[in-house]
């Protein structure tokens, strides 16, 4: 059977790549894509821990289902915000929306 550490490694790689994307990308939609990668890494971690450490229980799967719901809600609200921002400012680049900068 595949060791738990292998799943944790894949999850860590996805999380790090997603964090880089969320921090470095210019476009707001691309930042959201990075966030989705991080959500997925957390999801994979939760399911792997459930399978290897507590496969008879329901905590891990229910936690994963709640993560799915939260990710869906987050993406819907985030994209609605970007569309509103684009309508107001004519751009969805995160570093050009700097109205609060002095």
């Amino acid at each position: 059977m595949i060791p738990l550490g292998a799943y944790l490694m894949v999850s860590a790689a996805l999380f790090v790549i997603g964090a880089f994307g969320a921090l470095a990308r210019k476009s707001a939609v691309a930042i959201l894509i990075g966030l989705e990668l991080m959500f997925n890494a957390a999801l994979l971690n939760a399911v792997a821990f459930w399978r290897y450490l507590h496969p008879q229980g329901f905590d891990g799967t229910v936690f994963a289902i709640v993560i799915l719901a939260v990710a869906a809600a987050e993406v819907a609200v985030g994209l609605a915000l970007f569309i509103a921002v684009y309508r107001r400012f004519g751009t969805a680049e995160a570093d050009e929306i700097a109205l609060l900068r002095g």
């Binding site: 060791p3 738990l4 490694m9 860590a12 790689a13 999380f15 790090v16 790549i17 964090a19």
Partner: peptide
């Protein structure tokens, strides 16, 4: 991201159940 990667690798390498089989 690099700091995060180093920290996560260190943590996984020292996690006692990381090479464990499913119970």
């Amino acid at each position: 991201a690099g700091g995060l990667a180093v920290g996560l690798l260190f943590w996984i390498a020292h996690w006692p159940a990381a090479d464990g089989k499913a119970k």
